[in-house]
Design a protein around this nucleic acid. Structure first.
Lengths: 158, 158
DNA sequence: TCGATATACTTTGATTATCAAAGTAAAGTT
DNA sequence: AACTTTACTTTGATAATCAAAGTATATCGA
């Protein structure tokens, strides 16, 4: 009897802890990310702008449709976001020569700097986690997160 | 707009795995939550509305300032959100008798139902996570999340 | 090859969330 | 009683978003 009660309370603790942590984590990541953006160099980009920049990436040019798909917004919405980023000098637009309907988008020098700046935020976060976990714990965490991930993966069409 | 980030730097496998998992987890929770909201009963509330309802809660009445603070928005913004929720029948407004400047907000029956509905989502999510983790794994996950939490906590004023 | 259809994008009109600043009403202070 | 502070609402402006209409180019079928 006592054992049962104890087990339940241990589980409850984990339950509460998880619930609490997930909710807080969520908000904190958002606000932290927001704040990490506001620097002297890039004071004119929003978090939203930054995510567009991330998706465009450093490598090749991307067309509007594929970027919109990655961001899960309509192409119309993206057009407006890109207009903005072009105006601010972070992004270049080009017509494809092969198919003149297609608009190819890429980062300017300034855009690439912003991209790299934002990268630091993620880097610090991951390093902070890793620093606090030792050896096997890290493996266990990765496994745990993977199984959580599977849960969401299997429920995507809900 | 969905948040998507890719890191180029390759420190080691755990680093990449963590980065990938955290980013995915973040997006998945968001979309899952969004979808869990859309039901026959509550088709007129946004995720945003839901968060307001969540903060108001089931217990006592809350004044505008404290709700706005919890949500980290201005009171003006909240006024508009509350107008909306009152119009839709989820929330009641009342003047405080003690201090007639103060507006006290609480959930209607309908609002409480919405609150409970959303609670079930959280419950299912946490239970699903716990079901997939065994003994030590759960522990490690909680510890890891706590340390991430600490990282953000200690960087709040950045 | 021409006309119809499809594709890639932009524009438009509407809605929602947001803020800062101005406005209103009540409470507190001197 | 006059001034200040507090609690909230309103206003004006901006950003993100979508659906639907519009434009230009490409492709396909007869």
């Amino acid at each position: 009897m006592i054992i049962k009660v104890k087990l339940v309370s241990v589980l409850n603790e984990a339950y509460d802890a998880l619930n609490d942590l997930l909710v807080k984590l969520f908000n904190n990541i958002l606000t932290y990310e927001e704040k990490a953006l506001i620097t002297d160099d890039f004071k004119d980009i929003s978090l939203n702008d930054m995510h567009v920049i991330e998706v465009i990436g450093l490598s090749q040019k991307k067309n509007m449709s594929s970027i919109a798909k990655s961001l899960e917004v309509t192409v119309g919405t993206l057009t407006i976001a890109i207009n903005n980023l072009v105006k601010k000098g972070y992004v270049k637009r080009m017509r494809s020569v092969k198919d003149r309907r297609v608009v190819l988008v890429s980062l300017t020098e300034k855009g690439m700097h912003a991209y790299k700046h934002h990268e630091v935020f993620h880097d610090e976060m991951i390093k902070a986690i890793m620093k606090r976990l030792e050896g096997e714990q890290l493996d266990v965490l990765v496994k745990a997160l993977k199984s959580v991930q599977e849960f969401f993966g299997s429920n995507k069409q809900v």
